[in-house]
C-alpha cells in the first residue's frame, strides 16, 4: 500500500480550477478572479438561493446571484482605458439607414470554417484548452449572410459558455431578429452579411492590423449604423 502524500486541495486551488483547470466552467470561471472570502460568500449565497428557488419555482434569484458574481469579477478591469471618447452622430432615419451587425461570439458558416490556429474542425473543448494561444492570434472575421439557414450557422469560442448559442444562435448573433427588423421597416436595409469573430484575440494585432481592414469593409458596404455585440 502506497502512502498518499498529496496535500489536500486548498480553497484557492478549488476556485482557480474553474478557470481553464480541472473543473473548467465558462460560466463560473470568474471564481478565479475573486478573493477567497468573496468566493466563499458567493458559494454560500448560491447554495442558499438554490433552495429558495426550488421552494418558490422562481429562478430569477439564481440568475441574479450568478450575475452578481460575474460582475464582481469584472469590477476592476486592469486593461485598456481611455479618457476621451469618440462619437459619430447618427443623422439618418433608421428606417432609411443601412445596418450591419458584428459580434465577438465566434459564429461562422458551416461551409467556411475559419480553422483557427490552423486546425481543421476544431472542437469547442479544444478551443477552451487553447484559449491562451487564441489570445496571441490575429482575429479572423467570418462573413455570415443574413440569409443563412440555422443548420448552416456554427459557433465555437473558448472564452464563454456556448450552450445557449448552440440552442439558439440569436442570443449572441441575432440574425433572424435583424432580418425581421428589416422586413418590418424598423431599419432600412441590412448589409448582405453579418460578421462574427472570436473576441479572445491579440488586442494589439486587432487594433493595428485588423480594425482598419474592417473599417474599409464597412465603408465599401455603405454602412450607416453598426450593432456591435461583445460576448
Amino acid at each position: 500500500m502506497s502512502e498518499n502524500t498529496k496535500s489536500p486541495e486548498t480553497f484557492e486551488e478549488f476556485r482557480k480550477s474553474f478557470f481553464y483547470g480541472s473543473r473548467s466552467d465558462m460560466s463560473f470561471k470568474f471564481l478565479d478572479h475573486l478573493s477567497d472570502e468573496q468566493g466563499a460568500d458567493f458559494l454560500q449565497k448560491l447554495f442558499r438561493d438554490v433552495i429558495t428557488s426550488i421552494d418558490t419555482g422562481d429562478t430569477d434569484l439564481l440568475k441574479q446571484t450568478v450575475l452578481e458574481g460575474q460582475a464582481a469579477a469584472h469590477a476592476h478591469p486592469d486593461t485598456f482605458s481611455y479618457s476621451e471618447g469618440t462619437f459619430a452622430p447618427f443623422t439618418v432615419n433608421p428606417a432609411d439607414a443601412k445596418f450591419t451587425m458584428l459580434t465577438s461570439s465566434g459564429h461562422y458558416p458551416a461551409y467556411n470554417d475559419p480553422e483557427p490556429l490552423g486546425i481543421k474542425e476544431m472542437s469547442q473543448s479544444e478551443a477552451e484548452r487553447r484559449i491562451f494561444d487564441f489570445l496571441k492570434e490575429k482575429p479572423v472575421l467570418s462573413e455570415i449572410p443574413f440569409s443563412i439557414s440555422p443548420d448552416e450557422l456554427k459557433v465555437r469560442h473558448g472564452g464563454y459558455d456556448t450552450r445557449a448559442s448552440l440552442e439558439d444562435p440569436n442570443v449572441t448573433f441575432p440574425w433572424q431578429r435583424m432580418n425581421e427588423l428589416q422586413e418590418d421597416g424598423v431599419i432600412g436595409r441590412l448589409t448582405e452579411n453579418g460578421y462574427s469573430f472570436i473576441g479572445a484575440c491579440s488586442q494589439k494585432r486587432l487594433m493595428k492590423d485588423v480594425i482598419p481592414e474592417w473599417i474599409r469593409l464597412m465603408k465599401e458596404n455603405g454602412v450607416d449604423g453598426a450593432i456591435l455585440i461583445p460576448v
Binding site: 485598456f80 473576441g199 488586442q203 487594433m207 480594425i211 473599417i215
Partner: peptide, 9 residues
C-alpha cells in the same frame, strides 16, 4: 474589450 476597440475605430 475587442468590441470596444472596434466601436472606437
Amino acid at each position: 474589450m475587442s468590441v470596444g476597440h472596434i466601436a472606437r475605430g
